[in-house]
Design a protein around this nucleic acid. Structure first.
Length: 514
DNA sequence: TTCCGACAGTGGGGTCGCAAT
DNA sequence: ATTGCGACCCCACTATCGGAA
């Protein structure tokens, strides 16, 4: 190690971030990040990688957009080192939840007053999760690959198994290529979960697979759980690798009762009604977000555990085995916990299974290539989800100015359903999704024309005349909107100039989807 | 040369815990 | 008691880069 190497300053990180944001080329971004990493000591590199990928090592600071509104006067010259920043974050994090808002505020002010103007902006963006430099986890992993001359595939796999880019960078800095190759699944350390791409129909999903057999799983509308059992001790992790063991005792019990030794399984926890049909997501969400009065929660909203994968069993890693093999292992291990599942190579049977599951109240299906491995942390084509889509014709009531690459465009639209009782419109949600650049340009012009008084602010009210066809996954109860209902995952399909506001769907139609 | 996988960005609704009001 | 804030569950979609075909 080079003892004379100068300490890495926050200003160096800010400069790298600026350079990254200044180019659209991913290779140039990667190189800029790699240049900085090579200047870091092994003690520094974890923090630097974490900050440059927009992640706080401390996870929760208790500092958000609001507490960062009024900043102290900026320092003239940069003096902060990255390790000093990390230490300050550490103090903020440990003061979180101890009731000492004043001490956190003072800690934050001290940090910010030592930062230059550019550093203040960077720290604020980092703390609010708004780095927007065009490089997060993926590009930073590529930079680790470049900086330490380690194949990208090795770096990515290590990240899947170790969980964070910071951990991977520290390993690379201390042990190089060999250390990353030795990263393995460790029972008790969560693995990045495999994600699913989406398709409109089961046929389309099957089309993009190898054709070597399908596993069709019910998609349950609960929360993802990755469960580890190590030496009899069970831990439960969410999709984002947060530990929720103490909030889901039913899951712990179900996995503790399985035969054999150590294991890692992947599944979904969900609250079912007495008749076996699923409760709406809001019920499972409320149940699993809460930790107070667990006994009461368990009595009122018991969780049911479903498993759809097994990554490790009794000393044997299964990540690289085919889904077919993992299915056999899971069937042996926990047949009573298996998610609703169909093994088939018949597309019509898959389509029928989808229809049956939707009729049973579930979200849809996930179609899986029976020959594919468990591609941790990736949204590859091995798994493809299929959900039914509802469409509504709604009226645009207002529009919000966009941010980032949408600055200068009217972006997020407020959606209203017709209320025949009053002759007016009831707001049921917003959306910014599904718009191409062309549509953004069109709607900016259109809604500027339709704008009514009070158009100086962030929200631009418009005459309720423009009809838009919206796709949604469903409707949920709302305490925010006056109609008592809100759209779930609304996105624009197209603007309809063949319809007037009088032809729009009514609030009763929307409520009927509950 | 074209195609396509992976990534980043742009935000959506709901719920809880906690501290301040 | 109520309210505001922060965190984190669920998430869809488009644009873009750069390697694969």
């Amino acid at each position: 190690m080079d003892e004379s190497r100068p300490e890495v300053m926050l200003a160096d990180v800010v400069e790298a971030s600026r350079a990254v944001a200044a180019t659209h080329s991913r290779t140039a971004k990667t190189q800029a990040l790699a240049d900085l990493l090579t200047r870091c000591t092994p003690e520094e590199v974890g923090t630097v990688v974490s900050h440059l990928s927009g992640v706080l090592p401390q996870r929760r600071l208790g500092v958000g957009f609001r507490s960062l509104r009024d900043l102290p006067e900026a320092a003239q010259t940069p003096t902060l080192t990255v390790l000093e920043v990390d230490a300050a974050f550490e103090r903020l994090a440990s003061a979180h939840g101890t009731g000492s808002t004043a001490s956190r505020r003072s800690e934050l002010r001290t940090l910010m007053s030592r930062a230059t103007s550019a550093e203040q902006q960077f720290l604020r963006d980092l703390m609010t999760g708004n780095l927007r430099q065009g490089a997060l986890d993926g590009v930073v992993l590529a930079a680790i690959s470049t900086a330490y001359a380690i194949p990208a595939a090795t770096v990515r796999r290590a990240a899947m198994l170790a969980g964070t880019a910071a951990e991977v960078a520290t390993l690379a800095a201390t042990g190089g290529h060999r250390a990353l190759e030795e990263v393995a699944l460790v029972v008790g350390r969560p693995v990045r979960p495999m994600l699913a791409a989406s398709a409109k129909t089961t046929g389309e999903a099957a089309e993009s697979m190898g054709g070597g057999g399908l596993i069709v799983d019910g998609k349950l509308d609960g929360i993802r759980v990755q469960v580890h059992r190590r030496g009899g001790e069970v831990s439960v992790y969410t999709r984002s690798l947060d530990e929720i063991t103490d909030r889901v005792p039913e899951v712990v019990e179900a996995v503790a009762a399985l035969p054999g030794g150590d294991l890692v399984v992947d599944g979904e926890a969900i609250v079912l009604r007495g008749d076996g049909r699923p409760e709406p997501f809001q019920v499972t969400g409320a149940r699993t977000a809460s930790s107070a009065d667990l006994a009461g929660l368990q009595a009122r909203m018991p969780l049911t555990t479903f498993l759809f994968d097994v990554l490790h069993v009794g000393g044997r890693d299964l990540l690289d085995e085919s889904a077919r093999v993992r299915h056999e292992v899971l069937l042996d291990l926990a047949p009573h916990l298996l998610v609703p599942r169909l093994l088939t190579d018949d597309r019509a049977a898959a389509e029928q299974f989808f229809a049956d599951l939707v009729a049973a109240g579930h979200e849809g299906v996930v179609v899986k290539d029976a020959d594919s491995p468990y591609a941790a942390g990736r949204r590859g084509s091995g798994w493809i989800k299929v959900k039914p889509v509802h469409t509504l014709d709604l009226v645009v009531l207002a529009v919000e100015w966009g941010s980032g690459r949408r600055v200068g465009s009217l972006s997020n639209i407020h959606l209203g359903a017709r209320d025949p009782a009053t002759g007016g419109f009831t707001m049921v949600g917003k959306t910014f999704k599904g718009m191409t650049d062309e549509v953004l340009a069109w709607q900016t012009k259109r809604f500027t024309e339709l704008a009514v008084d009070g158009t100086d602010g962030w929200v631009v009210p418009v005459k309720p005349e423009q009809v838009v066809e919206i796709a949604i996954d469903g409707v949920q109860r709302s305490s925010r909107y006056p109609g008592g209902v809100a759209l779930r995952f609304a996105r624009v399909l197209r603007y309809r100039d063949d319809k007037t506001a009088a032809d729009a769907d009514t609030i009763d139609t929307v409520r009927g989807l509950l």
